[in-house]
Design a protein around this nucleic acid. Structure first.
Lengths: 117, 117
DNA sequence: TGCCCTAGATACCAGAAGGTTACTATTGTT
DNA sequence: AACAATAGTAACCTTCTGGTATCTAGGGCA
């Protein structure tokens, strides 16, 4: 998320992992990419209903920097950019699945309404 | 984390789950509780080396509100309070394990120093 | 009497994360 | 000539998260 590249970072792996997949939209983006193999910028924008272009771009850049997704630019007009999971990103899927199910179960228990996302 | 109890919350289970276990120290606290069965406030304070009393108390309250840990007060002097995982909290452990290992692997790949926490 | 212990509470503050709005380039279409 | 479509940028502002510092109760102990 943030990048304090001053000297050697000594941190807890759990914190590190959380920072890499935390953030308001990262989980959902990875999730959508799982189901769709490859998605264009606009498709993602429509999928993550409440995201703004600023946040989408920013989040995609962070995920790319972290090697969880890859970005393929087609030099065409109008522009076309495709996003897909990398192998490292795909490794996060079991974990995302687990969290989704757990979250859904908890929400049910609390009678919260599940916005199927 | 935050509680905006205005009307019915309609959210994505993934977001919901992230909010419940996100936060700077939640993962680590759950992790320590896993290894120790039950821990006192002061023990946790010493375990989570960089946490302040404010953040520890706040985080414990949130975890308790979310039913991930339980809090047992002994009415003694000096005070004694024990924290332990609930069943729901224990359900998070596989996920925490997964994240920890993934984080450790990634850190190794990036030659970062693992502060064993 | 004053200091230590435990398990916090409280007020105030800084910085990070995220939101809003407007703007960009380039080509095809009407 | 104006507009649509795509994939963004940039400046600015607000909110949220976490940090700092100080204070609490109530008994044991020197």
């Amino acid at each position: 998320m943030s990048k304090k590249n001053n000297s050697v970072e000594v941190i807890c792996p759990l914190d590190y992992a959380f920072r890499r997949i935390g953030g308001k939209y990262k989980g959902r983006i990875l999730w959508y990419l799982k189901s769709n193999e490859v998605m264009r910028y606009g498709e993602l924008k429509r999928a993550v209903t409440d995201i703004t272009t600023k946040m989408l771009t920013q989040t995609l850049r962070e995920l790319e920097e972290d090697a969880l997704i890859s970005r393929k630019v087609y030099h065409e007009l109008p522009p076309k950019v495709e996003y897909s999971l990398t192998d490292e990103g795909a490794e996060m899927l079991p974990f995302i699945d687990y969290l989704r199910h757990w979250g859904a179960k908890q929400m049910e228990k609390r009678e919260m309404v599940d916005l199927k996302c």
